[in-house]
Design a protein around this nucleic acid. Structure first.
Lengths: 217, 217
DNA sequence: GGCAAACACGAGTGATCGCTCGCGTTTTCA
DNA sequence: TGAAAACGCGAGCGATCACTCGTGTTTGCC
């Protein structure tokens, strides 16, 4: 609809300030949440004046949108390289590694991502983009499971399994991110992979091995 | 330290107002989060004036604390009846039912609980009580798993398993609460139980059945 | 019935927040 | 080198929020 009416030409200094402000915003959002964070606090964290902040962002919401947008973009790039055909053909343990490791690394490096995506207090635009990302990830999980599970698997159950696998991943991810870097975190990562392996193994067993004893439930 | 200096004597009407205000607060907190909720909005939702609200609560924080306290109390009562000796002796599938079902029911009936416990924006007192509850639940999970797993299981791994089982439960719970009541939710519940069963079965197999094929990881 | 206390009200108050504006400084470019 | 544009500042403006207070109504108790 409306073109950006301000083809403002930025200097290198300005780009640096923007990055600096977004980093500050990420830190403060992460610590206090979006609503409880004041724009003055972001400016203070970035060591600039409120006026300077508003030279680069029209309002508080735009800061969160820009930050969230960049994080989502980075995440998209990452998961785009994850659901590749060669990965899909991997044995289940390696498949889990290939999918989880990049996601975990990203979320550990960018804790603001989870903080921004999770709150019910974030501006609507972020929630929308998050929903899109969520749906996209979910459909890729569905596709992947569908490609490897028995073809007789009802779509309805496929959806349930994909939903639950993703939800379980998010739960484990929260634990992992909260754990202190080091062996504790590594242990949690290994444990989450165990959960997912044992959950998915009966469905995704390699061809010809589908006679494994399905547990009593 | 300080005794409550106001042994204010409440009428039945007052108690009703308090319940009404807490219910309204639960709804609005749930919809908008703690910080973004104004006390006037709570009063409006409860169909009373701001002045009336402040007759029963000294400030906004006290509302959240009272609400959170009541929910935590109710949850404690519930989980107290869940980790009983007779439950501990149950076969794993029934054990999972016995533990998960009350928790899930409570959280579906009181969505404000998750909303209040989860935010990093809640008043410190709530966070403390939540940490206590969390630690208490976790230790009971540890105890239960420890009682049933192989005695040779290192405590270190026991801790990891309990942490992960609880984290996975929380992830699945979020999916369940978000699902619309009905078959979708029931399906999600069954799926979460499958996850936990398959994760814990190798550890908690009944005595004498511990020769089950442990998966390659 | 009458009185004190609890309840209910809602306009108002001080503080804080998002955001602006005027002015001074630095960078770009011809 | 000079002017235009981008950058940087921080006091301050209007709006909103948590919370108060003076006044009127209802309830419990003798």
């Amino acid at each position: 609809m409306t073109e950006d009416p301000k083809p403002r030409r930025r200097q290198a200094r300005g780009e640096r300030r923007i990055a600096q402000l977004l980093q500050a915003a990420a830190d403060v959002f992460c610590a206090n949440g979006y609503t409880a964070t004041s724009t003055n606090a972001i400016a203070r964290e970035a060591k600039v004046s409120p006026g300077t902040l508003y030279q680069y962002f029209p309002n508080k919401e735009a800061i969160a949108i820009e930050l969230g947008g960049r994080l989502i973009h980075e995440m998209r790039e990452r998961h785009g390289q994850v659901f590749t055909p060669e990965n899909v053909a991997l044995p289940l343990p390696e498949l889990i590694d290939a999918i989880l490791d990049p996601m975990i690394e990203f979320n550990c490096l960018n804790p603001a991502f989870l903080a921004l995506m999770h709150g019910s207090e974030v501006p609507g635009r972020i929630a929308e983009e998050h929903d899109e990302l969520h749906a996209s990830l979910l459909s890729q999980v569905r596709e992947l499971i569908g490609a490897r599970a028995a073809p007789a698997l009802p779509v309805e159950e496929l959806d349930r399994v994909a939903d639950m696998a993703f939800a379980v991943f998010k739960g484990g991810l929260a634990l992992i991110v909260a754990a202190p870097e080091g062996p504790a975190r590594d242990g949690a990562v290994a444990e989450l992979k165990k959960v997912l392996y044992r959950y998915l193994e009966p469905l995704l067993a390699e061809e010809g091995a589908r006679v494994t004893t399905t547990p009593p439930r």
